[in-house]
Design a protein around this nucleic acid. Structure first.
Length: 426
RNA sequence: GUGGCUAUGACGAAAUUGGUAAACGUACUCGACUGUGACUCGAGUUUUUGCGGGUUCAAGUCCCGUUAGCCACCCCA
């Protein structure tokens, strides 16, 4: 039998409700922060990602789903969201001087990695970008939103790591200085790091290898190289976070896997997950627009949240809502009057209720079981006796109470019973 | 990409030293029950043990391969 492709996942009926719940909660806060949604294609020209993410990164080197289309163009399933957003902004000239654009996206991303818990080849992200603001206010705004989302979902224990890599202009200097510090130790670095030393020194600072770690431990952090201006910027971001009560840890060795970051970078992680504990990551990228061909500089900040990982956290904390059943199941006394009940079913649906009846035409016992299993609140019984007497019965499946009333009072009564419950649940 | 662990009905799982596969539990169907579910009791349905090969009189059990999942590394969401 054919199966889904490795690293992909079917979201089955029960789980899809949880995905919806997660998204709706997120959208409610994105709206309150006045972000607008942007939907870009899930594949782009390969070149877009190489230019934005960086040729030396792991993503570009070994994790991209790249293929040729029928005309021989090299296309790639997007491994992250920012590149496409920047492309779209430039293409459609969405950037205006002295204006801030706040965008978000929700959708699948693709990276060819070895799957494990919390890591799939197709995974989903919620991401935001704040474009056109070079002040620390944008960094703060983005992190505040991130925190609001975690709170909205009920995740209280989230760790934030933050660091700064300096402005785009000071980057060459920072790199030069890092190399100077590392050069006496270059023989003692691991093979990967000797390579990174040339291609991307920042990554050496992030190496997990013991020998490298001990060397780096003796060296000053990146922050110490920063210009006064850069440090002032970072301090302002931190002041803002302190003022808003956002707790974080300063991690001078934090480096991100994409080349375009400048200034502030950050990661959020959860202690509920295993080794894949990062649930969100982001930072500032003041240089990307120009690297993508923009005539003017467009300062920007953004982050992405891993939705599967959030769901995993929520699952392990038992914070996910249970699957909700129908409000009402309409029950008949046999095959024959089942069809006579369809107008009643439809009328209740028209009134806004979630209504089910037994499409299999089973006996009454089975219909009640259906009502019970699906978690329905009420059973509306309209069998042969009721139809003849122009009556209908309503049974409350939690209290087990049953009442009989005139057929034409049904809708009114159902509204009365269910509206009380609705107010509480919503 | 590297290393390790795992794979039995719809699901969770049992199966002495290789010797009749699925005990037990959940789910599902029907009945006791009166046109009435969830409780209780009774009856019943689903398998050639992921896939392919090998060793053996005999393989769920041992060996090789393969696929998938999990764990760690790499890296990240």
């Amino acid at each position: 039998m054919l199966q889904n492709v490795r690293g992909t996942e079917d979201v089955l009926p029960g789980a899809s409700q949880q995905w919806l719940w997660l998204e709706e909660k997120a959208r409610s806060w994105l709206k309150r922060f006045n972000f607008e949604e942007i939907r870009t294609p899930i594949f782009e020209l390969t070149e877009l990602f190489i230019r934005s993410i960086g040729e030396t990164t792991d993503i570009v080197n070994k994790e991209m789903y790249t293929f040729s289309d029928r005309k021989g163009r090299s296309l790639t399933l997007r491994p992250e969201g920012t590149a496409s957003v920047v492309r779209a902004c430039l293409q459609h000239k969405l950037i205006q001087p002295n204006q801030v654009l706040k965008l978000y996206y929700i959708g699948p991303m693709f990276r060819y990695e070895r799957p494990q818990a919390g890591r799939q080849r197709q995974f989903h992200q919620i991401g935001i970008e704040i474009l056109g603001c070079e002040r620390p206010a944008a960094d703060l705004e983005s992190i505040l939103l991130l925190k609001s989302l975690f709170q909205e979902w009920g995740i209280s224990r989230v760790g934030f790591r933050i660091n700064s890599t300096g402005s785009r202009g000071s980057r060459p200097l920072v790199q030069k200085r890092l190399r100077e510090w590392l050069s006496p130790h270059i023989q003692d670095l691991c093979a990967d790091c000797r390579n990174r030393y040339e291609k991307n020194v920042f990554r050496v600072y992030d190496c997990k290898e013991k020998s490298c770690k001990s060397i780096i431990g003796t060296l000053p952090g990146i922050l110490e190289i920063l210009s006064e201006e850069d440090r002032k910027y970072f301090d302002d971001v931190r002041k803002g976070l302190d003022q808003m009560g956002v707790e974080y840890e300063l991690d001078p060795h934090l480096v991100r896997g994409l080349d375009y970051y400048t200034h502030t970078i950050f990661e959020a992680y959860s202690d509920q997950l295993g080794s894949c504990d990062a649930i969100a990551g982001g930072g500032r990228y003041d240089g990307l627009f120009q690297e993508m061909g923009s005539a003017v500089q467009v300062p920007a900040v953004g982050w992405g949240i891993g939705m599967e990982r959030i769901l995993n956290v929520l699952q392990s904390l038992s914070l996910l809502p249970s699957v909700s059943g129908p409000d009402i199941v309409v029950i008949a006394s046999g095959d024959e009057n089942t069809s006579q009940n369809i107008p009643v079913v439809q009328e209740l649906r028209q009134a806004g209720f979630k209504v089910e009846y037994d499409l299999l035409g089973r006996n009454m016992k089975a219909q009640f079981r259906l009502a019970d299993r699906t978690g329905a609140r009420l059973a509306v019984i309209r069998g042969e006796n009721e139809i003849q007497g122009r009556k209908v019965k309503i049974k409350d499946l939690t209290s087990h109470e049953e009442i009989e009333l005139d057929e034409d009072k049904l809708l009114l009564k159902v509204k009365e019973i269910l509206s009380a419950a609705k107010k509480v649940s919503s």
